[in-house]
Design a protein around this nucleic acid. Structure first.
Lengths: 252, 252
DNA sequence: CGTGGTTTTGATTGTTGTCAAATGGAGTGG
DNA sequence: CCACTCCATTTGACAACAATCAAAACCACG
């Protein structure tokens, strides 16, 4: 049985290498972290907004979300994190995040101590640079989410979420853009999209009726990716992939 | 007549120092940039989405905005930049931004070469760290904008924008939370808030009728800050100020 | 065969968008 | 000093999108 910590760190490293170059020594430094494994159930909050933290959370399995909570308790999810994503790299230099992290489904999460991340970032400038770059990717995605929420219809937002998550899954070797697991409840999708669960349900039925998307439990099948990307107005440039993605969907 | 470049760099340095510590030598390094000054008129786009850049834009006067453009031409502004803000620090490690930068009003903008920023970030790890931190502040604001757009009413969003900009202006010594200049057209505010100009107009009339806000040209007067913050559900923690802000509004 | 969570449906309300036109103010040239 | 123009703000009528409330259907699980 493989070590979940090492596997997760390897995924994280692969994510960094998609956008930065690191020597063998630097790579070893990243993999040498001494971590604790959590197995939170769905809906368990892992970081409370405003609470000081001394670790970052690395997703090893399942799905995690960053969220902001309104005074009346309603939530907005501001980022989705799939295996290999470090949720909270931000908290390394700024240890009091303004947001929370929650497990959206039963997950495996690795706690990586800040002390380790800070040490290797100081020792290896290339690692600090890779962390900075990763933060920028996060910001770029956030910026796209702002424009989605501000300027796109519910249908386009839902389609865009499927396009983005499919692309990220494919990039992380967790599926393809046309078939991937996204274990999100409709109420959680609503918290991502700034809608209500009821409306998400109706929009999803619309996409199904148009033959664009099917779902089977957590699995999403995209049957007409070009059309889905069209109604989503999706352009993956904001994921900063440097051509790491095949231009056309595989298959026909 | 003071040098606008030096003044802008000093403002930028002060912004960094609000969240990071830098030695005298590191501070001198930041101020020693060799820059070009632009004086764009309102509505002039300074960076086109997707175009490679080899400089970052530092606002010296006026107001700049980061934007994303939809296929049909509609825009969403994803960040507002006041004097002292470096719009595009992200582009130092990732020189092809997925977004554009536009002058929202007649502005003074300083072009800072990437070569300089990269050189000082490599030479002084504390500067790289300060840049990373600044990127994190940007991401934190973006994250808050996501939750505003996703989960707050138009009125709350408008109120929140005034709270945020007032706080940032006060922090940058450009005014107070109760009186500051925000030379935004209503149509531009709509692009910030994910609304239409007509609706922004109606919401603004609502805030005025409640005696919360007055405007006089570019100048915003907040007459009832506590109430404005209440309806905005505003908590400045996400600006990562470390108590740099007086807890109560000045005055009565 | 219940049970609890999730999805789906229906009816209705409310916020925000759309379209079109009127008003207002600043600058320009006659 | 007065049209005139341009742009921004304001108003009005109406349509569309999404929220709300309530209940039914579905489904996995014990």
């Amino acid at each position: 049985m493989p070590d979940p910590v090492l596997e997760a760190l390897e995924r994280f490293l692969r994510r960094l290498l998609a956008r930065s170059s690191l020597t063998a020594e630097e790579q070893r430094a990243i993999l040498s972290a001494d971590c604790v494994v959590l197995r939170p159930a769905a809906h368990r909050d892992l970081v409370i907004p405003g609470a000081k933290v001394d670790f970052s959370l690395l997703v090893a399995g399942g799905l995690a979300g960053r969220f902001d909570q309104m005074a009346d308790g309603r939530r907005q999810i501001t980022a989705l994190h799939i295996p290999g994503d470090m949720c909270d790299l931000h908290s390394v230099p700024v240890p009091i995040p303004g947001w929370g992290i929650t497990a959206l489904t039963n997950s495996t999460i690795v706690k990586v101590p800040h002390s380790h991340l800070r040490r290797i970032a100081e020792r290896y400038p290339a690692i600090a640079d890779a962390f900075w770059r990763d933060t920028i990717v996060d910001g770029s995605v956030l910026s796209k989410w702002v424009s989605n929420l501000g300027r796109r219809s519910g249908e386009a937002r839902l389609a865009h979420m499927y396009c983005e998550m499919g692309t990220r899954m494919e990039l992380a070797d967790l599926g393809t853009r046309e078939r991937f697991d996204l274990p999100l409840r409709q109420a959680q999708a609503a918290d991502v999209l700034g809608l209500t669960a009821v409306h998400v349900n109706r929009l999803l039925q619309g996409l199904r009726r148009q033959g664009l998307v099917r779902t089977d439990g957590p699995t999403v099948f995209v049957d007409d990716l070009p059309q889905l990307e069209r109604i989503a107005d999706f352009d993956p440039a904001y994921l900063l992939l440097k051509g790491k993605l095949a231009p056309r969907p595989p298959g026909t």
